[in-house]
Structure formats: structure tokens, C-alpha cells
Design a protein around this nucleic acid. Structure first.
Lengths: 209, 209
DNA sequence: CCATAGTTTGATCAAATGGTCAAGAAAATG
DNA sequence: CATTTTCTTGACCATTTGATCAAACTATGG
């Protein structure tokens, strides 16, 4: 979509679609698909409901759009795990990237969490298709590292699940973490400690013995 | 309204309240409070909607009841972490207990996850009250273990968060795990590998150095 | 400054939803 | 077995919700 293409988006259209997707992420990430109303999204986007439905035909269309936009970013870091690199370094980098993502865009994480909690009705095919393919590939990489004695003997799949769990937890359970640490526990310092703790335990736990 | 005591519950009442709470856990754990309808709960409980509302005044009443019933069980294992025990053993037991809970009652975990994702509107006071108190106490225990050189130097709070994350992940993200591992990956074997992986990495990662 | 394409909204609709109520059916009680 | 209490439900209600539409408004290119 450039200035010359056949279907150039008007300025207004671009802006409004952006506003809608942003508002939709806000609401869907909190209440899930069924718990969200179109009025809520429209209100957050400061737009009338019919106007919102002028840009997206239905609530489901909005959901699909915001989910797709989010999913790519959310799953990308795993691809960067490099078989040629030093195993513990690669894993450390992966953890750092995922925690950074949780800090920068927690709503994306929660949107995804909500979708999975509800049984992944909209992304089931992505999970058992593309995602599974990447994970299978990376599992092979990890297995190779283990065979070379450069990593502790652990199940590669569950290792990946563990990393997902501990990194996304900071976005998904933010409310709980804030309550336990006290409201003052916001900001970068808290994420730094989190990353350091997670990294230390996992890396030491994965060191070959 | 009784024979002896001041408020003995009739057989039918006991049975039906149980059916309702079970059905409610089923639906709330999947769709969250806002995404759940009273009709859905009534249908799962094989009961008419007015009849259901005869036992619980409102949707919110049902939610509070099922949440409270679940919360106690869900948070209990942490209490058992014993300052007098061997640190790595205690943590191993705690992990085992939490994973067992995820396997036995994944819906409870998902109910809780949904509540937290939505900002913990109904359990905020529990989180910043009783839960926080327990966690503070256990954090002190962990700190003492570290001071005695019996545990690696990590932040106690984030260690607890890590354990919550990796154990509850198997319940909360079940749909994703099934998709990635293939549908055949159900059953106890898969949970055994999970527990072994999680335990190995965390325990080795926490061994004092 | 007109014409066309793109944008916005008030009014409206059918379906879904949380909740009520009166009246009937079943249990418990004496 | 008569009566009182508990339980159950069909019918109903006010709101909310997803979606539509015609009419009005605005941007923009010629």
C-alpha cells in the first residue's frame, strides 16, 4: 500500500483503523472475545459504533485483525534462536527478548492468554500449524545441543514451555504481581530483577552436568 | 426452617448447589465473568434459569461462590513450604504439589487466570491481603535459606512467581500445549515429563554455588 | 465550486441477556 | 392425608448487544 498502488488507503482510513485496533487490543486483552462489547471498543476509540462497523464488518473481524497483528510479533523471537550460537547464550537472549516483549506490550500477551484460555478457537490452526513447525525445529536444535553435551538433559518441548511460562507470566499475571509486591513495584527496576532471577535460575539449571 | 440446628440444608439444596458450582466453574473458567451467561451455566447444570436463580440470587453471587471455593484450594500448597525442611526438597515438593493440582483441577487454575487477566476485580483484596502475607512470610524463609548458603542467591518473590508460572502454565495454556505436542500428548506421561523437566531445571538452577 | 467518493451518525431492529413473578409440582411434616 | 415448606418452571420484562441503513456530512480532485 504505497502512494502508487492500486488500493491506496486514505489518511482517515489508516488513522481510524489504527485507533480501532489499538482500542480493540485494550478491551479484548482484558475481557476476551465474548466478554468484550463493540460499544466498549467504540468508546475507547472515541468513535460511534456504526462508524467503527464501517471499518470492520463485525466484532469477529476486529478480533481476527488484532489477533493476527499481535500473533506475528509475539511468536517471532523463537525464530531467532540460532543453532550455530552458544546454547546458553542463545537461551539467555531468548529469555531477554520475551521478557522485554512482556514489558513493552503486555496487552498482546494477555490477548493471547485469553484466546488460549478459551480453548484457542481462533488460533487453533496457527498453533498446530506454523507454531508447531517452528517449535519442532527448535526442539531439534536443543536436542542437538544436548547430544553435544552443551546443555543439560531436559525435554526440549517442556523447556520451551517453561520459558514461555516464566516470561509471559509477568504480563499475564501483572495484577497479581502488583498486589503481592505492592503498588510501588512498577517500573523497570522490577522487570530487571525479574529478568535476572529468571535468567540465573534457568541458565544455571540448564548448564550441562 | 429446620429440625435441629438453625439452618440445615436440605438434600436437594445441597445437591443442586453443588451442580451449579460445578457447572459454573466449567463455564467461568473458560469465558471469564463477563463472557459467561447465566443460561450457559443453567444448561450445563441441566436446570432452568429461574431454578438456578432460586439458589443463587445473581450471576455475580455464583461467581463469588465458585471463586471462593476454588481460591483456598489453589493457594494452600504454599503454606506447606516448611522453613525447617531441606530447601531444595521443600521446593521440589511444592513444585510437585502445584503441578499435581494443575493436572487434577485445571479449571480452577483457568478460573483464577481469567480473574487475574481481567485485573482481579473480585479477588484484589485477597491478593493484597492474605496472599501477600503468606508470600511475605515464605520470602523470608527463602531469604534465610540463602543466607545460610543452602540456596542460590535469587530474589525470593520472583522465585515464587517462577514456580507459579511454570506449574500453572500446564493448566492455563493446555490448548496451546496440546496443539504443539499433538493431540496424543494427553495423559499422565506428559505430566510426568513436565514435572521432571521443571523440577530438574529449577532445582539445579537453585543449588547453591 | 461542483461532483464524486469517502466518512459519520441517529434511529432502529432482532436477538440475547440478567433477572422477576405467580402459580404449579414435590417433599417434608404433623 | 392434609398442610406447610421447598422446589421448579413458563411467561414475561427491561436492558444490552451486534448489526443495519438511509441520510447527512466532509474531503478531494478536476
Amino acid at each position: 500500500m504505497s502512494t502508487t498502488g492500486k488500493s491506496r488507503k486514505s489518511r482517515i482510513k489508516t488513522i481510524n483503523e489504527g485507533l480501532i485496533l489499538e482500542a480493540a487490543l485494550d478491551v479484548f486483552s482484558r475481557y476476551g472475545f465474548r466478554g468484550t462489547t463493540v460499544d466498549q471498543i467504540a468508546a475507547r476509540a472515541e468513535m460511534s459504533k456504526p462508524n467503527l462497523l464501517y471499518y470492520f464488518k463485525s466484532k469477529e473481524d476486529i478480533y481476527e485483525a488484532v489477533l493476527e497483528k499481535t500473533l506475528a510479533e509475539w511468536l517471532a523471537p523463537l525464530t531467532d534462536l540460532d543453532a550455530e550460537g552458544e546454547p546458553l547464550d542463545e537461551i539467555r537472549k531468548y529469555i531477554a527478548a520475551k521478557i522485554a516483549l512482556s514489558e513493552r506490550n503486555p496487552k498482546a500477551s494477555r490477548l493471547f492468554a485469553n484466546e488460549i484460555l478459551q480453548g484457542a478457537p481462533s488460533v487453533a490452526s496457527v498453533l498446530s500449524g506454523p507454531l508447531r513447525k517452528i517449535v519442532d525445529r527448535k526442539a531439534k536444535t536443543i536436542r542437538a545441543w544436548i547430544a553435544q553435551g552443551r546443555l543439560a538433559r531436559v525435554d526440549p518441548y517442556h523447556l520451551i514451555f517453561m520459558i514461555w511460562a516464566v516470561t509471559q507470566h509477568y504480563a499475564d499475571f501483572e495484577a497479581q504481581i502488583r498486589a503481592v509486591l505492592g503498588e510501588g513495584a512498577t517500573g523497570r527496576k522490577h522487570f530487571d530483577i525479574a529478568e535476572q532471577t529468571v535468567t540465573t535460575v534457568l541458565i544455571e539449571g540448564l548448564r550441562p552436568r
